[in-house]
Amino acid sequence: MDSYDKELEQKVPDFEEKQDTHSKEISNLNISSAAYSTQIRGWKQTVGIIAVAIFVIGLWELLVRVLNVPDFILPPPSKIIVALVTSFPNIYQHLLFTLAELVSGYLIGAAVGLIMAAVLTQMPFIEKIITPYILILVTTPTIALVPLLMLYWGFGIGPRIFAVALATGPMVMINATTGFRRTDLAKIALAKSYGASTFQIFYKIRFPLALPMINVGLLVGGIFGLITAVGSDMVGGKIGLGNRISYYASLARMSNFFAIILLVALIGISIWIIMTIVGNKTTNWSE
């Protein structure tokens, strides 16, 4: 079981601090490094970010009004807000539906991905055989499978949850795998010198060591899950935020269209914020 057992028998760990030696691996997408480099520090930065937002939105409003751009091409931000507020009672059920499919698909996918990563990293041979297939799942947009899934299971929430799980799971798994592979032989030797069991080594050493990468996987998985949820809504059925996007676009009701886009963006930002908070709370020791 313990792949490091043999290694430990053969060599004395070098006690060098291992700083992200694995970060070059494919699983570490650019998004993930961005996630941890964009922590806001200081009021100047905050003011700057808000100033840019005000400037862009103001310029948008101004140009659309001065140049008399018709609403069906690009509505001004003010009309988008109005559309969001007035149509919210109608959008509400679509929002809840998409959130339900996102959250359930995410939880299933993340749980399966985490467990698979934890188990497979204990079995290096099987891991090597399975990894290419996981890569296929990561690189193939799962959304492409949704028409097929809907053909099998209809236009309900089931196939969409499945699609979200299929988008989230491999992302969580591949990042968590990188984390679990980050075995610090010196720390494992330490635990072993006290007679630690495989399970103790897992949850007292390997899991905390893997946590930073697991958090990255949970964040990236969440974003991919959102993309897949909205995309699945677009494929079929009459409900969900994605469905509303297609619907309003087909009617050229661009203010409503952008209102939905705004909602989707807010969900994405919430995922980001939640995962950043979770990351800071669970891995405040790293850095």
Partner: peptide, 8 residues
């Protein structure tokens, strides 16, 4: 050789 403390 190193303190090898668990950083968390």
């Amino acid at each position: 050789q190193q303190a090898n403390l668990l950083p968390w």
